[in-house]
């Protein structure tokens, strides 16, 4: 038991140190790259336009990033979230991938086993993405007609609905009572206020809050019984 605690503590310390260092390095590289490319092209970024652009399009994403950090970090654990926020594509790839891996491994959220499974799953998912994109870029000329064929376009336009449809079955079948109200609330909201359809990523928060509130009521009822 003591040995396990020691292993976990050492792993956690290492994860935070590594996570912070690589996050900082990635940040410097990502912000530095436009300046490096600009100096090579002979023109630096227009910082006034960057400021205006940030106010126009960046603020929404800032709010969205804060929500993502608050919601996804508990799901992924520390190592998983350092890696997921570095590699991106959270909603359409990393979160479902980690949740699916957690289910397959039979581990519970909040445990060290879950933290390890999430980290492993996100690392593998990111590596596969990097390899697929690198191969795709390498073979862009021959692949372009196939990938951009009008016949196949609906398939690639609907990767996310296919993903959430499959995940919905998996989760709804075991938690039908819990799923009914968020699904109903979101459906009514999107039907009555169609303009909200472009804000789905932000509406995850109220939908998730309702589901958590219902789960809490069920949990309390179970404890009292």
């Amino acid at each position: 038991m003591e040995e396990r605690k020691e292993i976990i503590a050492k792993y956690e310390r290492g994860t935070h140190l590594l996570g912070r260092v690589v996050s900082a390095l990635t940040l410097v590289m990502l912000v530095g790259a436009p300046f490096l490319i600009g100096s090579w092209l002979g023109a630096m970024p227009d910082l006034n336009a960057v400021g205006r652009g940030f106010l126009a399009v960046g603020l929404v994403w800032t709010v969205s990033s804060v929500v993502e950090f608050l919601v996804y970090t508990p799901m992924l654990g520390s190592g998983g979230s350092y890696l997921a926020f570095i590699t991106g594509n959270l909603i359409n790839m990393k979160i479902p991938c980690a949740v699916n891996a957690r289910d397959l491994a039979g581990v519970k959220a909040g445990t060290k086993e879950n933290e390890i499974v999430s980290t492993l799953s996100i690392a593998v998912s990111s590596l596969v993405t990097i390899v697929v994109l690198a191969l795709g870029v390498l073979l862009l000329q021959p692949l372009q007609p196939l990938l951009q064929s009008p016949v196949l376009q609906p398939a690639f336009d609907n990767v996310v609905p296919a993903l959430f449809g499959a995940m919905a079955y998996k989760y709804y079948r075991k938690n039908l009572k819990l799923a009914v109200w968020p699904l109903l609330m979101m459906s009514v909201l999107f039907i009555l206020l169609p303009a909200l359809q472009s804000q789905t990523s932000i509406l995850i928060l109220p939908s998730g809050a309702l589901a958590i509130a219902l789960a809490w009521l069920k949990y309390r009822k179970g404890r009292k019984a």
């Binding site: 789905t200 809050a209 589901a211 958590i212």
Partner: peptide
């Protein structure tokens, strides 16, 4: 529950 909320928002 959070994940169910996420999926429900999209569906």
């Amino acid at each position: 529950a959070m994940f169910i909320g996420l999926v429900s928002a999209y569906i």
